[in-house]
Design a protein around this nucleic acid. Structure first.
Lengths: 196, 196
DNA sequence: TGCCAAATAGCACGACCGGTCGTAAACTGC
DNA sequence: GCAGTTTACGACCGGTCGTGCTATTTGGCA
């Protein structure tokens, strides 16, 4: 890897941490440059625009999400074990060391929901893809006979997403000590209601 | 009402609309002044600081939430009907005419979850209060014999909040046409599992 | 070792930010 | 209709923002 590419990676890594705490708009080129120890113009030479940098950050985040959540869950046996593993790793993602401020997608979702543009499009695309992965895992569990045949996979994915959103909310904002117990109990109930 | 108080109300009303779209930080004194048709300095004379203005906006939003969601639900009979009414009005709140960008608390939650200060404190306080109202409604439903005795009211409130968060997410960000059907089906299942 | 390209820094710009201040206009009670 | 207060204005401050343009330094290869 060339020196430029290495620097670029350092910048995006730092920007990703900032974005998890302050959101994509919280990334300021000046502060980011100070964080990685270089000049604002030197940093800016690596990107066409701030928007391009934000897109790179989102892409890096989704690549990391695949590493931390999707890939490990795919190692598990098809059916309910894999569904459970996805959920477990999703909870891990929220407190992952590389994201001091929590899930960067949650922050970006609130920022971008009324702001059309490439960043919003990319975010929606990845969220949709993740929901599809969740629904597909549920469908596999149906085919494996673990879940009942009339279960709606898309609805099941929606319910999973909702619970994780509630968990993030309770943990990050409300500092609720019962957040983890609540989300686990609720998820267990959801899986139980999905069983054949 | 004096002229000053009327102007102040107009400002807060406009700021509330902006905040629902762009968040509390999206309120800029200059743009806000332009929106209500007055000078920046003339507007600023009504508030001690921008942070004070943000607090006023949050307070106005919570007062409106009580009007739109809490009060109407309290008219319903105790027990399950009231629980259902709270949920229904909560969905109405998200698409309320005075909030073109959706629930202002959702936006503020994402902005403030890592930013300590009076605004965050106020938001947490109101969210906690609302969760308490939800839990209390569930407890009343237990006492009325509508819900089973071993139901955990706090968990039930958490599950409701989660579903609404999922609904907002699916509707605002993903433009999911099934968002409303999903959230209603999921809520019906939740209530069914809570029944005695 | 010298050269060329890649990488970084310096500097300036226009725009916008929250906030201050002195002053003028408009309202209100007598 | 006058006096005093409330309300609003315009000019301006220091600061930060994203983003050009140009110069300087650095690093790999002949």
């Amino acid at each position: 890897m060339s020196k430029g590419a290495a620097t670029r990676d350092r910048i995006i890594e730092s920007a990703l941490r900032t974005a998890s705490v302050e959101g994509l708009e919280g990334i300021s080129l000046g502060r980011l440059a100070a964080d990685v120890g270089m000049s604002k113009s030197g940093l800016f030479a690596h990107f066409a625009s701030k928007e391009a940098l934000q897109l790179d950050v989102l892409e890096a985040a989704s690549a990391r999400f695949v590493d931390v959540v999707v890939q490990p869950a795919m190692q598990e046996p098809r059916g309910e074990p894999r569904v459970r593993s996805m959920f477990e790793h999703w909870l891990v993602w929220e407190r992952h060391e590389s994201l001091p401020g929590g899930c960067v997608f949650m922050h970006a979702a609130a920022e971008l929901d009324d702001r059309p543009g490439p960043a919003r499009d990319a975010l929606v695309h990845w969220q949709q893809q993740w929901l599809d992965v969740l629904a597909k895992a549920a469908r596999i569990a149906i085919d494996a006979g673990h879940f009942r045949a009339d279960l709606d996979p898309a609805l099941f994915a929606f319910q999973q997403l909702s619970l994780v959103l509630g968990y993030y909310h309770a943990r990050r904002l409300l500092n609720d000590a019962h957040a983890e117990a609540h989300v686990r109990t609720a998820f267990d109930a959801l899986v139980a209601s999905a069983r054949a």
